[in-house]
Design a protein around this nucleic acid. Structure first.
Lengths: 130, 130
DNA sequence: AAATGCGGTATCCCCGTGGTTACCGGAATC
DNA sequence: GATTCCGGTAACCACGGGGATACCGCATTT
């Protein structure tokens, strides 16, 4: 009839490792946040500054999620006004090789063809509100 | 007043390399498709078999997108019934180090805590249609 | 003649996501 | 007293992606 179905040469996943690790990075700007925490702990406002197009709402949500997934720790500093410092956990640092691999692909892309994507998320900016 | 804003120790992106490479992997199951094409070319039905929970609609859409992004080639075989074979391009293969890095994180996760995520996409299965 | 395999496409519709805007409290500065 | 900085939260809402289902043409098999 047709061609025979060939057996895959890569492992069949009872639980898919790729899916598992991608779940850790789910949500807009999550990989970017990890990237900016990779070198040193950063405060909320610093991250906002690092990632200019992120909104406070989304940054806050993302940090809470990353914290609940065990990738990031949150530490409130006793200053005034109070500030909060975020850092990668050991688990968070385990993602750095993947992030670096992605970054180096992106660098080659930009070097060869210039930038094409502008926003990490699917959503486009709406025209206005109200 | 508050603490001074510390300069980031990682590069400020005029164009963000991380964002660029993630744009290549956008869409449900895209990384999984790349994974299953990593060892050898695969046909449409084989990929459906490899990724049991993907629908034909989404697999088709994803393959067209990956093709238009230059990660995958499509080759129609002259058989009956006709079949199509998909393969990674050189650009597609450049993503493999990142995919492998993610996979190895996922393997550690599963080995240590068992599986938590079940679906690669945000969407949950709805109860029924019609 | 009917069923099966292959490689899709068309339609419908839900709902998760993230952008936008407004607002909070306390301390320090102007 | 007013404004600024900090680190958020609350409410509203448009959008688009993907799941489900039905269907297609062709050729071979039963």
């Amino acid at each position: 009839m047709g061609l025979p179905v060939r057996k895959s040469k890569v492992a069949a996943p009872p639980a898919c490792p790729l899916t598992e690790s991608l779940a850790l990075l789910r949500g807009a700007w999550a990989p970017n946040v990890i990237w900016y925490l990779s070198a040193e702990p950063r405060r909320f406002g610093e991250l906002r500054h690092d990632i200019p197009r992120i909104s406070a709402r989304v940054l806050s949500a993302r940090l809470r999620e990353l914290e609940s997934r065990g990738l990031v720790t949150r530490c409130v500093l006793d200053t005034s006004p109070p500030s909060a410092e975020y850092a990668l956990t050991d688990l968070g640092r385990e993602l750095l090789p993947a992030i670096h691999a992605l970054t180096s692909v992106g660098q080659k892309l930009i070097a060869e063809w210039g930038t094409t994507a502008t926003t990490p998320t699917i959503r486009r900016t709406r025209v206005a509100a109200r």
